[in-house]
Design a protein around this nucleic acid. Structure first.
Lengths: 334, 334
DNA sequence: CTGAAAGCGCTTACAG
DNA sequence: CTGAAAGCGCTTACAG
């Protein structure tokens, strides 16, 4: 457990460092049976374990990647990270997790630090505030994969839910059940957070496709803390919605807080579909119909792409947007 | 963005590498104003950023710690990680996240790898299957802090919820509301997962303290997948419970699945308190009374302790168990 | 089949 | 006030 180095092993085994190194890297082609045994024994007896930092310095590869999420507390991010970690683990890569909190300054600091630590690549939920930096990375052929946010200014492979489809699925389901006055509740849409924009788009498109004209009163979009009030405003207008699409899990919580507070019966008073298959969907009263994102598949794909890029900096066709299909899970809330 | 090294900066600025290094490490004591400017300019113009791997090799410190959780998907772990990351970030430390899945083999692999990568310390939710390894680490004065599990065989500082108190709080509340037939539902207790054991203990102690004799039928403990059936067994016995304490968030979900399926009214048919303040507690129908663990404080404390150990391998008094107070959050389910 | 030597990019006494 | 030199612990041609 002390600081046994390769030199110690070499001395103990009576061979040179080079030979020990060959042994460790399993280059046995020309190694004598005897030498091999001696080294094996030395390593065993000294309790030697190689210093990967030294190896990394020489090999210019740390077998470590950085993962920058907005906030690990978001369930979707957690699932993505879990999938990434699993995939990386199989290839003996480790992940450094960073929370950028949607702050471009924090994001930049993390990127700089990750690069300084010589990570082999980065998977990021980009804030949108560091386009130039990412452009530089791309230009330097530094492996980067984006998750859940599109930065159109820069050609970096990006993993996305098909958000238009997610909303459409919700609206279609609602329409099928006979609802026409369908509202969408969303976080602020004046941001670079692609999914919010796309989900609103998908909502509008689906309405149109079903011959329902878009009613601006039915699109509520604001900070989570304000959402309760805004929803109340909507419900106190002359025309009230019959159904709600909650654009993500945190919005759903606000909607549910509202319906509970005002004793609205779901789905009798108001039908409801949430995007994100929340943990409590099936045990809620009533069970919640949701649109699930394939977070694990998406995380896996991100890791797959990144490790691919790390292995060879080419594969031009990889630099697109990868869309993953959301899935409707029908329960009782609509 | 290419590979600018310190040597490049030195040449460009017309000074030696040593001087550049001094500059980077802010040892300005004797540095000429002029030299300083030249270096500043060179770094700026070349876009140099130091290679931390090289520095780490020399300094024998990577400013990186490993965090081994059972599963990042568990909300408690996620919160702990977030707190650790925040605290580390302030001290310019990064965290490598590992999921051991309660598998000692996986845990050992991660520990070995983290050490090979020369992390400065480890925060772990130990599986209990690697006592010897941890003993070795402790012996080598390698900084380790445990989280949420006690390994009594080894004197490593450990951060815990006061689990006995958590259960007591639940039982007391139930008793206060007039319930006497109080059941506890728990995951399997034949493990090293300390909280499960302690919570069952706390449950029993609190019953006794309140003069209620312990009824073995009211202690249901088994795999999550079996829990539904076991709960059903309990409810179909002659004496039925009036109230349930769910020992953690995942158990709570199973209990709720059961009550929903069998149309049990909470709290009329059965009162309920869950340990872990789940995200949907306040919007559930009825809102759920819970016992919250101070996950963020606990994560922060773990990071604080670990960085303390990293800075100086001594402070004997740090090697104890740190208990954090859970909190009762009264809502409608009891 | 194995070893001596150079080098990865830093830091750190030490000399001047 | 600054530089030359050694060294952190590996890997990798290359020589023999």
């Amino acid at each position: 457990m002390k600081n046994i180095t390769m030199a110690d092993v070499a001395k103990y085994a009576g061979v040179s460092k080079s030979t020990v190194s060959q042994f460790l890297n399993k280059r046995f082609d020309y190694m004598g049976k005897d030498t091999k045994n001696k080294i094996e024994k030395a390593i065993e007896e000294l309790g030697y374990s190689p210093n990967i930092v030294a190896r990394s310095l020489k090999q210019k590869s740390t077998k470590t990647i950085g993962v920058i999420v907005a906030n690990i507390l978001h369930v979707f991010s957690t699932q993505v990270i879990r999938a990434i970690e699993d995939y990386c683990n199989e290839s003996d890569f480790q992940i450094i997790v960073c929370n950028a909190d949607d702050d471009p300054v924090k994001e930049k600091r993390y990127i700089d630090m990750l690069r300084a630590k010589q990570v082999d690549g980065i998977i990021a939920f980009p804030t949108g505030g560091n386009v130039d930096l990412y452009a530089k990375l791309l230009n330097a052929k530094f492996p980067v994969v984006f998750m859940d946010r599109i930065l159109k200014e820069v050609q970096i492979p990006t993993i996305m839910t098909d958000n238009v489809k997610a909303s459409s699925l919700a609206v279609e389901q609602l329409v099928e059940r006979g609802y026409k006055k369908i509202a969408m509740i969303s976080p602020p849409a004046n941001t670079c957070v692609t999914p919010r924009l796309e989900r609103i788009d998908g909502y509008k498109q689906a309405l149109e496709k079903n011959g329902i004209s878009f009613n601006p009163n039915f699109l509520v979009s604001s900070e989570l803390t304000e959402l309760g009030n805004k929803i109340h405003d909507m419900f106190t207008k002359t025309t009230q919605p019959e159904a709600i699409v909650a654009s993500n899990d945190r919005v759903l919580l606000e909607v549910l807080a509202y319906t509970k507070k005002h004793h609205l019966d779901i789905p009798k008073d108001i039908a409801l579909i949430g995007i994100d298959d929340v943990s409590f969907a099936s045990i809620y009263n009533p069970a919640l119909t949701t649109i699930a994102q394939p977070a694990f598949q998406m995380g896996k794909k991100a890791a797959e792409l990144l490790l691919g890029l790390i292995r060879d900096n080419s594969n031009e066709e990889d630099f697109g947007i990868y869309r993953f299909e959301p899935k409707l899970i029908t329960r009782e809330s609509c």
